[in-house]
């Protein structure tokens, strides 16, 4: 099912949580809402689910306006952050709940509900645990039961709120791969919320980066990482270094020295230069480059991170060098970013 969020604004007691957000989700897509806490990602998810009503704007399921529909009518599968499993019900009863509460002819027989529950348990690889209670399951198992329960109602859209938030790193990675497999097998349109960029970039077809109630950028993992469209996205996704610079005569300047980057398109004046610490080229002859004194040097796994002080203002930036690179021993290092981007100074 296609989902279209059109100019949605949401206020809580006059405090805006979302400003004019629009988003098109394609049918069968696995999409991640990524952002720091307070960015409005969970609010957006709850709005799509119908757990909240938008202050303004509309939400379409396919061609149909779902904004005024209740959560029951929207037929969404929602997996809650802490799973919200019914603790007095067995695993099988939890999964069958959505079918049991149906009315009239749409309600399957008790036998059919049991059959569906054990089928879904097979799908989430928990066969044989029908009779257990949620308290007798591990965190990862509860997560899977919650997903099976949400899928039992054959939802139009599957919505997951921080699905791996309460799990430890090891289980997280396993479940991530597993969720991708399930998605590919069932083809549900799926939206999940996360604050973990690794999770979003690895798992999702497209990532929606959010900040302060706005969507900053929507794109594939490659697009988001390689061509961030705002200082926020540059800083939030992956490692980044930034320096205050000036644009004049189509050149980028630090203080009174051009650094060998031509910026004919950029507007004149103050700007901020962003680049990835690992995406730099070391130069010997500083004929237009960024040069700085080594302030600190740290070994991080397979690389060495060097902190440089640049110019009279002693601006600090980080770059990454191969561990055995001779430049790491020097007290002065000159480099030029290979890939970089300028944003006008705010």
């Amino acid at each position: 099912m296609e989902v279209r969020v059109a100019n949605v604004r949401k206020e809580f007691e006059r405090f805006p949580a979302l400003h004019d957000v629009s988003l098109d989700i394609k049918s069968g897509e696995l999409i991640a809402l990524l952002g720091p806490s307070g960015s409005g990602k969970t609010t957006l998810l709850r709005l799509i689910a119908g757990l909240e009503r938008p202050t303004r704007g509309k939400i379409f399921f396919g061609e149909e306006d779902a904004s005024q529909k209740s959560i029951q009518e929207r037929n969404v599968g929602f997996v809650f952050q802490h799973y919200a499993l019914f603790r007095h019900m067995t695993v099988a009863d939890n999964i069958g709940f959505g079918l049991k509460v149906r009315h009239g002819p749409t309600r399957p027989s008790a036998q059919e509900i049991r059959r569906r529950a054990s089928e879904l348990l097979d799908l989430v690889q928990l066969s044989g645990l029908e009779k257990r209670y949620p308290a007798q399951l591990s965190g990862g198992q509860r997560q899977r039961v919650a997903l099976a329960r949400a899928m039992a109602i054959e939802p139009a859209v599957l919505l997951l709120d921080e699905p791996f938030g309460a799990l430890d790193a090891q289980v997280r990675r396993e479940l991530r791969r597993w969720l991708r497999d399930i998605h590919d097998a069932t083809g549900h349109t799926t939206v999940f919320v996360t604050h973990d960029q690794e999770e979003a970039l690895e798992l999702a077809d497209r990532v929606v980066v959010m900040s302060q109630g706005r969507i900053e950028q929507v794109g594939t993992a490659d697009e988001i990482y390689d061509t961030p469209n705002s200082p926020f996205v540059y800083g939030f996704i992956g490692e980044s270094s930034s320096l205050p610079v000036k644009v004049e005569d189509g050149q980028v300047w630090i203080a009174d020295r051009p650094i060998g980057l031509s910026a004919t398109q950029a507007p004149q004046g103050e700007a901020t230069l962003f680049f990835r610490p690992h995406d730099v080229e070391l130069v010997d002859e500083c004929n237009g480059c960024i040069a700085g004194t080594v302030a600190a040097s740290r070994r991080v796994a397979g690389t060495r991170r060097v902190e440089l002080e640049i110019g009279g203002e002693r601006q600090r930036v980080e770059i990454e060098l191969p561990v055995d690179h001779p430049a790491a021993q020097k007290s002065r290092v000159a480099f030029r970013p290979r890939r970089w981007k300028l944003f006008p100074a705010a």
Binding site: I71, Q72, F78, A84, F86, V101
Partner: peptide, 18 residues
């Protein structure tokens, strides 16, 4: 838990009772 029940299609009374 109530939100979960509603999202699974239960009405208010069912959410309360179950």
């Amino acid at each position: 838990d109530e939100e979960a029940a509603l999202s699974l299609g239960a009405n208010g009374w069912q959410a309360f009772w179950y």
